[in-house]
Amino acid sequence: MRRLFSALAVTGCLLTSIPAATLAQSQGFTLFSGVKSENQLPFRLDFDGQRLGTDRYRLRLPAKKMNLAVAQFAITYPNYYKGSFDPKNVEVRVNGKSVPLSEVKWEKEGRVIEIFPQEPVPAGTSVELVLSNVQNPPFGGIYYFNCQVLSPGQVPLLRYLGSWIISIS
């Protein structure tokens, strides 16, 4: 009898926590993602991540991840993501304030969005990459968006910072 009540209690907790995490459309508890927890980055989808919907992705980089100054951000995504991005509607916020950008390039064939701030983003700051006017893909699923950065004066190799695990329903 004790085992039955324990099983019911655990099941009840799981069932009530799943809808809350789904409604938030932000980083939650992820099992078996293949991405180490220290490499999972926080994010938020402003319009609930509905398939075929227009959305705004708020991809966050906590200050503890920003060990070096950043001259370029590169966001890669999987080949099965069939959404679209608007390079004219990309914003970089450093500690909550928008910074001017020199260029934003979306290479559709290479599945990468490259963002170049006019001035390097200082180390130790929290950053939010805001992608507005995103057209979500026609099919729901889990999509891994990877963040790589290039520091000024660094050998021109992008360095991996982490991944946003985005769910489209």
Rank of each mutant, 00 (worst) to 15 (best):
G96M: 02
E107C: 02
P87D: 06
T11V: 14
I166L: 04
R56Y: 10
E128Y: 05
T22L: 12
V121R: 00
T16H: 07
Y77E: 04
L129H: 05
A20S: 10
A69C: 04
M66N: 15
S6P: 01
F139I: 12
M1W: 11
P122Y: 06
E114R: 11
K108S: 11
V92M: 04
D48Y: 11
Q135L: 14
P87C: 07
N39K: 12
I115Y: 06
E109N: 10
L101Q: 02
Y143A: 01
R58H: 10
Q50D: 11
L45N: 00
S102V: 07
A69L: 02
S132D: 14
G141K: 03
P138Y: 10
D46C: 06
N146P: 03
N146L: 08
L161H: 08
S37F: 10
F47W: 10
S84R: 09
N39M: 11
S163G: 06
L101S: 04
A21H: 08
T11L: 15
G153Q: 02
K36E: 15
Y160F: 13
N133I: 06
N89S: 15
Q118L: 13
Q135R: 12
R51S: 15
V155M: 11
Y57E: 05
I115E: 04
P120H: 04
V104R: 01
I113P: 01
F145Y: 11
E109L: 05
E119R: 07
R159K: 13
S151G: 10
S37G: 09
P78H: 09
P19M: 01
G83Q: 01
I166W: 00
E38S: 15
A71S: 15
P19G: 01
L4T: 13
Q25Y: 10
N95K: 05
E38M: 10
P117I: 06
A123D: 07
S169G: 14
S167W: 11
L41P: 00
Y143P: 00
L52H: 11
L15H: 03
Q27F: 00
